[in-house]
Every structure is written in C-alpha cells, then in structure tokens.
Design a protein around this nucleic acid. Structure first.
Lengths: 225, 225
DNA sequence: TAGATTGTTAATCGATTAACAATC
DNA sequence: TAGATTGTTAATCGATTAACAATC
C-alpha cells in the first residue's frame, strides 16, 4: 500500500518530525517552510522535502507547510491513531518506568496487560493496572490477542518468552532486555533498545575529545583572545 | 589522537560489538572469525573487518580474532575503564530506573550525585545513594566537577538546567527529557534519547506490514492474482 | 504579477559490500 | 606447505545535498 518502499533512515526520522511539529503547533505557529524547520532541527531543507515527498506532497509552493496538517499527516503515516494491543513483561525498575512514563496512546498503542514472574510483584497495581503472573500469559494471549510485547525481563529469559509469544500471535517486540532479539521470520518486528549503548557513545566522545577545537584546559592561564 | 576521524556509524556499532564479544567470552569461546561473528550479529563480515580496521589490525590472518583481546581493545577504544564523573537529575520513574538499572562502571562512568527538585524526593535514598535537592547543584558542581549529566527532568526544565550545567563544566548530556537538546558549541556532547520514537517505528511497521509477503488476509476469499 | 518555496531530478558524498593479495 | 582469514583497495550501493523548473 505504501508508495514503493520507504528506507529505514526516513522512517526513523518521522517520529522526530512529528515531535517538532507538535511543539510548533503548541507555540501556535501555523505555517513553516522546510528551510525554517531544517534550521530548528539541525538538518537540511532538502532532506526534509525529500523525506516528506516519499509519502506525498504535503506542502504548497511559495507558502511552505501547514504545521498542524503536516503533523497530522505524519501521525497518520506512523499509525498513531491505532490502538495496537500491547503487553509488558517484567516490572522491575525499567518495566515500571516504561509502563508509567511512555504515553502509549500517543504512540498508537494500548497497554492491555502487565506481567511479572515474581509473586510479590504480580498482584500489585502499577501505573493504574494490575500486574498478572507470567503463568497466566498464555491464557491471556488466547483471549486478548496482543500484537506487541514489551520485554523488560532479564536477559536469559527474553528469547524463550519471545519465542512463545510469537506462537501466541505477537508480531512486534520492543526489547529492553540485555541481548539482542532476532527472528528468522522477517515479518516479526523487533526494536532492540540498549540504553548502555547510547551512554557509551558519550563515553567514547569524552574519551576522544580534543578534536579540532583548540582544547582550552582550565590550567590555561592566559589564552590568546 | 584517533587515527583520522571515525564516522559516527562506526562508533555507534562499537558498543554492540563489545556486547556480543562479551557474550561469546562468557560462553568460553576463545577465537572467532569475522564471518562467524557477522552471522551471529546479522551483518556482513566485510563491515566488521572494515570497522575494526579503523582502529587497528586486531586480527590474525588465517586465524580470526581472539574474543577476549578484541573485546578489551574495543572497551579501551570506548573508554570503558574511565570513571567519568556523572550526575543524574530528576528521579521520577525514569530517573530511578536509569539510576538502578544502568551499569555505570561498565560504561566508564561513576554516578556521583542524584538531584531532584521535589522536596519529598530529595532526602530519600535511591539505588543506594542519597538524593540531593537541585538547589544544591551549583555548589556540588563547584566541588565535584561532574563532566556528564543525565537529564530525566520534565521537558520545559531541561534546557535551562543544561545551560547552567555547561557553565559549571559539564561537557556531555544524556538527555531523556522530551524535546531535543542542542548546543551551539559543538564540543558539548548530547545524546537525546526518545523512547517513544523507538516505539513509533514499531507502530509504523505494524501499520504498514503486508510488504512483499504473500499477505494472507483472513477475509481474503479470492482477490485477483 | 513577482516572490517564495515546493516537488523532483541530477550530482555528490559517504557507507557498505565485494574482491583479493598479504600473511599467519 | 596448504588452508584460512585477515587487512585493504576497488566497486557498488544508498542516502544526502544541490539545483531548478513548476506553481502557488
């Protein structure tokens, strides 16, 4: 149904466009040119126009783009108005944070079940929802047919749980457990999130700075102006 | 100090190599060829060799790579043995999860202070550390000189706090607050993390699936071939 | 209309892959 | 030595940028 085949690089930029346009809309800004937007986002106007034109001509020559209309278009492309039935497994620190911190409706998702294997956690309420024991997961899936699963379980547990969930009809995984998840069946979508990987790029950057800057050290008493 | 200038694409892959090599080492595997590793990681052997050779020739013809030695090399490139002084601001759900869930020593970081503006949170202990009130942040920075700050504060607060931290000597930000952080001074490193953006790529994928698969829809009695 | 800015094509750039000589 | 696999160069591919005609 999509025009041809959209490159992953483009797709990964869509949420960011959506976010920025939302902020502009909140500020009451009605129209914006690709040039202005590019400056705010730190990219080229060409790229913005190129990206958007993968999906259609949302702008108007001589005018630019209508902020709200464009935002809505991108939201629709992303599928934000959907209600993807979503479960979350593992309510340790991270699972709890995800459950309460992420706005699922804004992501086209509906959180329909929380699961944990710890009997002291199962039974509790988190983010206004009851936590079920993982023993009940199979029955739950037969009844509720979730299509997206968020994994916040310890590393070793993840592959096994994921496998069984695929058999129960889950088609997408947002995986926070250490260790990447991969499926032979390329129809199963996986988004492996490794927060530490992101932090490590900063560590790398700090380790290797000095670059082309004149590297002002604080012991540098009278640096030339 | 680095050979020439390493591309960000390469740098972003380093933590993943490090992770995989760590798992192999745990399994007691001593040597691995770029081909074997590429199959496990879902990439080409060429890319692995190309990436590694940005930093040096860590392999041996006819043999491959020594798992532990290569892992250590990459760890060193990333700066994992460092102790970057790190503070975390904002101990809501996400801040708490980061504080307790991320292994800072493994990322070359040392968490030296937690801060929150909520007086009911300041004073508490989280992840074995006392939470200070943000009012004490300036004094703390003068004394302790953190170089990395993790921002888990509400969106509107982030830019102001970040600005003041730059003046206090912070040179890198791991930003979880909604809204991107950017500095004119390119020497300030920023890693904007938007979990929702990651989730949205799954939403997009689910919305647009059908791709080149034979797309068996259940209501599809006899669609034209 | 004239000015502005898009949509789109062509040019450039960078990143990935393939190939192979070097060498362990 | 023969076999294997690297390090590295060259070829390909894809993504980004520049340019400009179309058009509001």
């Amino acid at each position: 149904m999509s025009k041809q085949e959209i490159s992953p690089s483009v797709i990964r930029r869509l949420p960011r466009y959506h976010r920025f346009l939302g902020e502009l809309a909140e500020q009451g800004i009605v129209r914006i040119s690709s040039k202005e937007l590019s400056q705010q986002m730190g990219m080229t106007a060409s790229q913005i126009r190129q990206d958007l034109n993968c999906f259609g001509g949302f702008g108007q020559q001589g005018y630019g783009y209508n902020v709200c209309a464009l935002r809505d278009e991108i939201g629709q492309i992303l599928g934000i108005s959907g209600r993807r039935r979503t479960i979350l497994i593992g309510l340790g620190n991270l699972g709890r944070a995800i459950a309460s911190h992420v706005s699922f409706p804004d992501c086209g998702c509906e959180l329909i079940g929380l699961f944990d294997s710890n009997p002291f956690v199962a039974g509790k309420d988190i983010a206004g929802m009851p936590v079920h024991h993982t023993d009940t997961l199979t029955g739950f899936c037969h009844q509720e047919h979730p299509e997206l699963a968020i994994l916040c379980v310890p590393e070793n547990a993840a592959p096994r749980i994921a496998q069984s969930l695929v058999l129960l009809g889950v088609r997408a995984f947002w995986n926070f457990s250490h260790g990447d998840l991969r499926f032979e069946d390329s129809a199963i979508l996986v988004e492996n999130v490794h927060l530490a990987d992101s932090l490590l790029t900063l560590t790398y950057g700090l380790e290797h700075e000095s670059r082309n800057e004149s590297a002002p050290s604080d012991a540098d008493s009278d640096k030339s102006k």
